[in-house]
Design a protein around this nucleic acid. Structure first.
Length: 621
DNA sequence: TTAGGGTTAG
């Protein structure tokens, strides 16, 4: 009678190779516990291979604690593989400090680290918060052991230097690599350049690579997205589609973020259909990027639809929808979503509160805002950050509670920044708290923290009073200080093309038609009794010049172009980099009525939906 | 073993 394997297994203790293959094929924690019990019964727990495989499988199934106690308490002489694997597992789980602690523990044993150990430990260093980390020490240890030129170690070192913005050291390492065309290290170098904002160097290296994979394309595309070059990001994505490399979910997240920056709804929808038609993995992150793109491109309806389609909605997905509603002035809905999120048993984050407080400030919901702000610390155990104070100062300040806003600023545990002072000054101007506003502005001018906004707000305060001498003085001061006002820029997407305009722009091929349309609009507006708000013009010009300066603001040019290049009756969508001025706001309301067009404007702060002579913001922005 | 992703005050 021939004995089968199971018969043998009962007659003799199973050989380590048997357990080894059982562990390799094990897919569940329950099964692993059974195998572990059998290992213990057979007395093989200290066998180096069996022990190592158990430890590694516990890690890969997410039981880092069991894996670690196996390593530290039940392994007589842990090998360099056991330690390295444990360090690697901690890095994979984002436990970078624990990974480094294990590395230190390993150094106090007789084990010498190998290339695998260094590549994992260095990866932990690259993810630590900025500052002088242990990366340099590890670099010198690797050099001493002759491991620094190993491709894996060198690539991890490039990442360490990339994380601290040290492009020179990264490049030195990269240049010493034996294979200059190594895909992974080249990608690491591209990422390093991109992080430092050196996109041209990144692109040079990218263009010279003989072979590129998806990760490499993603690194370059995301470099553009993260550094305010969304047009280049989308352009490179189109180029990628013409190559043989297939995009993945990481690619589309980055491209969607670029579309969101531009507010390019048509391009964003095109990426959305690409995702659907090419079976790109639709996870919560892709869903969130889509929600963000739709919100920032003016389509809250599409954003809501995508939200419904996400199977595992996490708090970040909720946050993007709440923030989107706040942006569009749908404050009540934003607060309703917040309640739903809590009802679902999810824990709101600090970002959630930025969203709901912002919703309150856009709608003047003072008591709701106060209650939510209080609940942050007392109910949800989240310490308010400067952004939250910013929302509150904005909310209180707009509502005319300027003193309460001032008190809140003084109670903060952090120093107010220029943004916060800016909101406060805007409130002083809005509610004519001239003395307080003057005091604050002069304080900012004297301590050197004033920005262009400070000068403009101070000048506006004086302009409101009709004090033109002071307006002129502030303007001279601004000139002398050398601070420059960021130029206003408006854009509109027509047929998948973004058209950009600055004030008085003559560069557009259809300039003549655009200015003819502006003249026509001016005539129609005057007939409606419109008077230009020339007090907003900062320059000391004569009245007709002031009118002309206002008349060619970038958003007016973009709207005129929209009117001549889109079908009558369709919605015109404009994106502006700064806040829309009072005059443009007034004019846009009138144009929406005269031309029978819905006009949606995204400014730096929020969305304005202009329909039939009024705006969704209720003139409160 | 290697590289890369989503939400954030004005």
């Amino acid at each position: 009678m021939s004995a089968g394997p199971s018969h043998l297994a009962v007659a003799h203790p199973p050989p380590p190779a048997h357990f080894s293959s059982l562990i390799d094929g094990c897919a569940t924690s329950r099964r692993l516990l059974e195998i572990h019990a059998a290992v213990l019964r057979s007395g093989l727990q200290a066998h180096p291979v069996v022990n190592f495989k158990l430890q590694r499988r516990y890690s890969s199934l997410g039981h880092l604690d069991r894996s670690l106690s196996l390593l530290l308490h039940l392994t007589p002489n842990p090998s360099v593989f056991s330690f390295s694997s444990a360090i690697h597992a901690h890095v994979l789980h984002g436990l970078h400090l624990s990974a480094l602690r294990l590395y230190v523990q390993m150094l106090s044993s007789p084990i010498t680290p190998n290339a695998f150990t260094f590549s994992s430990a260095l990866r932990a260093c690259a993810h630590l918060p900025p500052g002088p980390g242990p990366g340099l020490a590890l670099h010198s240890q690797a050099l001493r052991l002759g491991l620094a030129s190993d491709p894996y170690v060198a690539t991890a070192l490039i990442d360490v230097y990339a994380s601290s913005g040290d492009v020179i050291s990264a490049r030195t390492l990269f240049d010493r690599l034996p294979d200059e065309n190594n895909l992974v290290s080249s990608t690491a170098m591209i990422t390093c350049y991109a992080k430092a904002g050196e996109l041209r160097h990144a692109r040079q290296l990218f263009d010279r690579m003989p072979h590129r994979d998806c990760v490499c394309w993603n690194a370059m595309i995301d470099g553009y997205t993260q550094h305010g070059k969304p047009t280049e990001a989308v352009e490179l994505f189109r180029k990628m589609l013409r190559s043989s490399v297939k995009p993945n979910e990481v690619t589309v997240i980055s491209v969607l973020s670029a579309c969101a920056q531009m507010g390019a709804l048509e391009s964003g929808k095109w990426v959305h259909s690409y995702i659907k038609n090419n079976k790109i993995w639709f996870n919560a992150q892709v869903g969130t990027a889509l929600i963000d793109m739709y919100c920032k491109s003016g389509s809250l309806e599409d954003a809501c639809q995508v939200f419904e389609e996400i199977k595992d909605k996490d708090v970040v997905a909720w946050n993007s929808l709440i923030t989107g509603h706040a942006m569009h002035g749908r404050s009540r809905e934003a607060l309703e979503l917040f309640s739903q999120l809590c009802d679902e048993g999810l824990q709101p984050t600090d970002v959630t509160f930025v969203g709901v407080l912002n919703a309150c400030s856009h709608a003047g919901l003072v008591s709701e805002g106060r209650a939510l702000f209080q609940s942050m610390e007392h109910v949800h155990n989240i310490e308010p950050k400067i952004e939250h104070y910013g929302c509150m100062v904005d909310l209180l300040g707009r509502a005319g509670l300027v003193e309460e806003a001032h008190d809140l600023m003084q109670s903060m545990r952090v120093e107010p920044d220029t943004v916060l002072w800016g909101s406060f000054l805007a409130a002083c101007r809005l509610h004519k708290k001239i003395n307080l506003g003057e005091k604050v502005a002069n304080f900012l001018l004297s301590n050197g923290t004033a920005n262009s906004g400070t000068y403009i707000l101070l000048s506006n305060i004086y302009a409101t009073l009709g004090n033109w001498e002071e307006v002129a003085r502030v303007r001279t001061l601004m000139k002398q200080s050398g601070v420059q006002k960021e130029p206003g820029c408006s854009s509109i997407e027509v047929n998948n093309m973004i058209h950009e305009f600055i004030v008085g722009d003559l560069r557009h091929p259809k300039s003549r038609e655009i200015y003819a349309m502006l003249d026509e609009l001016k005539r129609l507006l005057k007939a409606q009794g419109y008077v230009p708000r020339t007090e907003l013009v900062l320059h000391d010009l004569e009245e007709p010049e002031k009118e002309r300066a206002l008349g060619v603001h970038s958003e007016k040019l973009a709207i005129a172009f929209g009117l001549i290049s889109t079908e009558p009756g369709t919605t015109i969508k404009i994106i502006k980099n700064l806040r829309v001025c009072v005059d443009c706001h007034e004019v846009t309301k009138l144009i929406s009525r005269i031309m029978g067009r819905k006009i949606v404007v995204r400014d730096r702060n929020r969305f304005h939906h202009f329909i039939d002579g009024s705006c969704s913001c209720g003139d409160f922005w």
